[in-house]
Write a protein that binds this DNA or RNA. Sequence first.
DNA 1: GACAAATGATACTAATATGGTATCATTCAT
DNA 2: ATGAATGATACCATATTAGTATCATTTGTC
Lengths: 130, 130
Amino acid sequence: MKLITRNTDYALRAICYIAQQDKVVAVTELVKVLGVPRPFLRKILQRLSQKRILESYKGQAGGFRLKGQPQKIFIIEVMRVFQGEIALNGCFLNKHVCPNKGKCILRKKIKLIEDDVFTQLKRINIASLI
Amino acid sequence: MKLITRNTDYALRAICYIAQQDKVVAVTELVKVLGVPRPFLRKILQRLSQKRILESYKGQAGGFRLKGQPQKIFIIEVMRVFQGEIALNGCFLNKHVCPNKGKCILRKKIKLIEDDVFTQLKRINIASLI
DNA sequence: GACAAATGATACTAATATGGTATCATTCAT
DNA sequence: ATGAATGATACCATATTAGTATCATTTGTC
């Protein structure tokens, strides 16, 4: 059980690095710094620019730059890009009627934990990681 | 991202049901009640008895019974049986030196969240689910 | 304008974890 | 003895994640 996948992890590292540079950063540079496989990193960066977290510049001297301020980018946004809606919950017994109350109580308790996790994740922005 | 997998979920349901019965419960009965595929449930129950959460009785009129008291079985134990050590954390950049402090701060923050989740999970026992 | 260096788009493959099945051996109440 | 139960174990299926490959498009530089 991972809270953060590799995708997200790499994305966060890249964003942190880019945030610290005051220029457009090319993949080549990021690959050197992060040691992440180039094609994989490219894919990740592309998605980040599709999702408006990064800005991309094509052509020679192109690359990526942060779109907003580091204070305004929260890691939960990045997690959502690569991991979809974050849900620790989810009932497995869809087809059947719940056989005992145990499960529902369980769901309720898990939900409380989930809410806590959310609250904390929502507080962490890129600026706080640098 | 699931906090609880299907395995664990089924296991918890089964344990809750068994806890409420004052007898040895056979798989056949559990299958009827829970609607979980029989061979899969069997495997789950076997592991639970290997891990001393359930007691098993072979032969005719055999089945499973709770080994301890419902108050003393915590869901985190069951999670560990099927999901291994629970860790939301884990650095992905093992081979390389951490390129920036961002990642380490991230790990630290995730660790805090993880600790919270643990604390809450450790409080939930089977008795509280029934 | 040609060219090289960059990203965009997209399809494919590999690895891993989870979910689930199948089968035969062993035990034990009747 | 027999049949109904679990024990052990090997296998298969599916989904998710991780990663690769390839070609198209843009753009700065000569």
